[in-house]
Design a protein around this nucleic acid. Structure first.
Lengths: 346, 346
DNA sequence: GTGAAAGCGCTAACAA
DNA sequence: TTGTTAGCGCTTTCAC
């Protein structure tokens, strides 16, 4: 039984004190300036109702003593951390990097700090990290969580204020910003069948991914489609490794779970001497920055990655101020036709 | 004059309380279990010297009351945050993403949280963010800081424990993990001249980047080299936009500041119908994941990105425990010859 | 092994 | 406008 399971907290060791031993406190500043601690506090927080002369004395004393207010003490006294947290399954995925960036900028603009944790795709780890992160922040953004709907609903209270990104959990009281995966897949398939393709191979994503489940379900729901499902993953390597299987299965077009596996399969096919899109067409999903620069440039489905981060901040901000989180939104993806798709060979 | 300049702190607003109003405190748990707060504290921290029966009572009470220790109170009482901070100039740069990932995993393994801030390349912003981040953490990793040597030396005390990544600052008492840029450039040039190239174009990086300065200086220091310096940047777009200038200047090979500008120029040249490496050779720097997947695959200089993050954690950990930060290291890059370089046309 | 009590450094009523 | 005072919730000596 681990410490966490026993309900204990992680042991904290190390040299004591963010406060470099001997660092000035508010009391010392007050003393030096000949005022009360309350006055120092007021000055440091920009209260206007302080005698300018006193304020000047306080500021001088603070400067002189190299005074830096203790963040820990403020957190305790205010009951506020000035921090928000983000938990993602995988930091090497461009999708989450975009959310991170968007959130980081928006939060930074508002003077808030950002705590980041990576769950490494493990649902249990994820839940623990999320709780832990939430304890050290005023709010939490959960990106594409791997935990089950149930688990998330059970934890909802302890995680709130909470915003969900790339995922919707029915019955959970948290705003969610997600992608209409089915709509994206529909666009891809319409494009492909319009080009004459009948036999498609789906290069699947990681098994635990809710996005993968939705995309696959959407494909399966399309009537009269000759569909082969190939095991894939979320990385280049997975796509690269699947190139042989793609050729073998005889599909004229491969629908990649995301842009990375699609790029991988692109490279793999080139190595096998299979012309793209001459003999096989390839599509991706997400429109990561690199998708424009593959050879040929990748036909893919564009989703508003950075915007998700920014909007997540807005929702979280509202929640943290006791306001409503607003209606859930599902962004409708846009098909971007580039060079990796072409007519089915006749 | 901004609040920060006046020496004030960011105003914190929002609904009070990470502690969901009515949340159990250590006192309530103590009361419920019929023990003192000290005993609850001992149990929560896994002290072995507690009567098993009492411990069980405490745990039961904690569970019953949904008790979660207040992170803020612990921070104040312990003088420790359980957090380390990372400040990077640009979160969209794969280089820093790798450091983030490496650091995040290493810190996570040690049960520490990670605070991330992006300075957006602005030296003044960077300094403020670094100080702010450091206040909320037990230590700080600064990646490729844009601030001047002077400024960093002046702030050294307030930032310690501090580890520098992708940068060395003489006279600053902080371990640094950096790249031997000159050695990397030397390898590139040797490779290129060995292929018969005499006229090289350097596609420069962002002006504020110390790495760019070093790479450029290294190039300039090489005798008998016909060198054209082209303004670039750190992104695809910059490289893409420079393709025309590359052709015009007549260089037979272009040395990109990093892999992204190099990939950009690759695409640009293809669009202009210039064969690579037939007429122009192209090299990158960093070996980001995508470099293997460009067309042709990019000849580049490999540096240990993820390792920097992991090592940074080790150094920081030592420092936080009052140990020595160890000797500085400069990683020696490795040339990776792939398809984007070839013999000079005769 | 357990409890009492004194902080950690700041903020915020409330009085003056 | 300023100071006094009482916390915020936890940890940790120091007695018992």
């Amino acid at each position: 039984m681990s410490a966490a399971e026993r309900g204990e907290q992680a042991p904290l060791t190390g040299r004591r004190g963010p406060r470099p031993a001997g660092q000035a406190t508010i009391s010392r500043v007050a003393e030096a300036a000949g005022v009360s601690r309350a006055t120092v506090s007021r000055v440091m927080n920009g209260s206007t109702s302080v005698n300018p002369e006193l304020a000047a004395r306080v500021r001088a004393a603070a400067l002189e003593l190299d005074y830096e207010p203790s963040a820990a003490a403020r957190r305790l006294a205010l009951g506020l951390t000035g921090t928000v947290a983000l938990v993602v399954p995988d930091l090497s995925n461009p999708l989450f990097q975009s959310v991170l960036r968007g959130l980081s900028r928006a939060a930074g603009q508002a003077g808030r700090q950002l705590l980041v944790a990576e769950s490494d795709e493990d649902p249990e780890e994820e839940v623990i990290l999320a709780l832990e992160a939430r304890r050290n922040a005023d709010g939490l953004v959960l990106a594409s969580p791997r935990a089950t709907d149930e688990r998330l609903r059970a934890l909802g209270d302890r995680l709130a204020p909470l915003v969900l990104v790339y995922r919707e959990v029915p019955g959970l009281d948290a705003p969610s910003l997600s992608i209409d995966n089915a709509a994206g897949i529909a666009q891809v398939v319409t494009h492909l069948t319009g080009l004459g393709h009948r036999h498609l191979a789906y290069l699947a994503g990681p098994p635990g991914s809710a996005g993968n489940a939705e995309r696959l379900a959407a494909l399966r729901a399309i009537p009269d489609l000759d569909l082969t499902v190939l095991p894939g993953g979320s990385m280049f390597e997975h796509g690269h490794a699947a190139a042989g299987a793609v050729v073998e299965c005889g599909a004229g077009a491969v629908v990649g779970f995301n842009d990375m596996v699609a790029s991988g399969v692109l490279t793999g096919l080139r190595e096998l001497g299979v012309p793209v899109p001459g003999r096989v067409s390839v599509t991706g999903f997400d429109d990561i920055p690199f998708a424009r620069y593959t050879t040929p440039p990748l036909t893919t489905v564009s989703i508003p990655q950075g915007e998700l981060g920014r909007r997540a901040w807005e929702r979280l901000w509202s929640l943290m101020n006791g306001e409503d989180g607003g209606y859930n939104v599902r962004y409708q993806p846009r098909l971007l036709v580039r060079g990796s798709t072409g007519p089915a060979p006749s």
